[in-house]
Amino acid sequence: MKSIRKSNFLLFMLPSVIALLLVLAIPLGYSLITSFFDTNLKYQGLGEFVGLQNYIDVIKDVYFRDSVKTTLIFTVGVVILEFLAGLVIALLLNNIRKGRNLFFTIIIVPMMITPIAVGLIWRLLLHSDLGIVNYVLSLFGISGKAWLADASLALKTVMFIDIWQNVPYMVLVILAGLVTLPTEPYEAAAIDGASRTQSFFRLTIPMMLPTFSVVLLLRTITALKTYDLIFVLTRGGPGSTTEVISYHIYQQAFRYLEIGKASAMSYLLLLLIIPIAFLFIKISRSRTV
């Protein structure tokens, strides 16, 4: 009986294992191999074996190092601000009794739009001569800015747009966590004379910590991989002020066609993401145990 169960288990697992191998393991393995060759899409085959030279070149590349720095600033900035904004909105929505669904639907709209469309829309809105943002500011006597062309503003502008798009995701997850919180601890706290602030810091925050961890980790991983917004909004400019790792990898792979170097860069990005992913798995498991 036990052996039949075991064979059934293996049989049912097989399609998933094959699918995972095809879509995940093989591309990952292949790109790991290419990272040790001077593979170029212009020529057939893997090219010459270069060992760790691609990794050495990438680490020496000043623009790659700058893109790591820009990516970290971008990620830390957007994740923290999106989380805080998402928490505030979710708390407000959680306390609304009438029209909650309407507010929720409106707030969630930006999340439904693809990043490419978001980029194009904001590029039009922020056009420094003909855009509506500067026009509205001018009505209040405020002079407009070159939002995407000023080196001191461009990264902040891209971060703002990313926040605009991704706050709904934070709201969605945090609100889902808030509505599932048990009411008993709050009732007990109220009987004991706890204020709303005390309840928030002593009950809500501790009970929501697992949800916060998951949402922060997932968002950190996606923010580290941001590419589409940069491609549409700034192409890494002005200068190289908005050049993030994923855009740098795109250039290496699809403009320079140097797949070997692009693979090495991708693995270095993976090194950044893997610890975060492991942390996420650990927290997810600790929640289910």
Binding site: S128, D129, A149
Partner: peptide, 8 residues
């Protein structure tokens, strides 16, 4: 040039 030109 207009201020937005570096990004146009």
């Amino acid at each position: 040039a207009p201020a937005g030109s570096p990004g146009y």
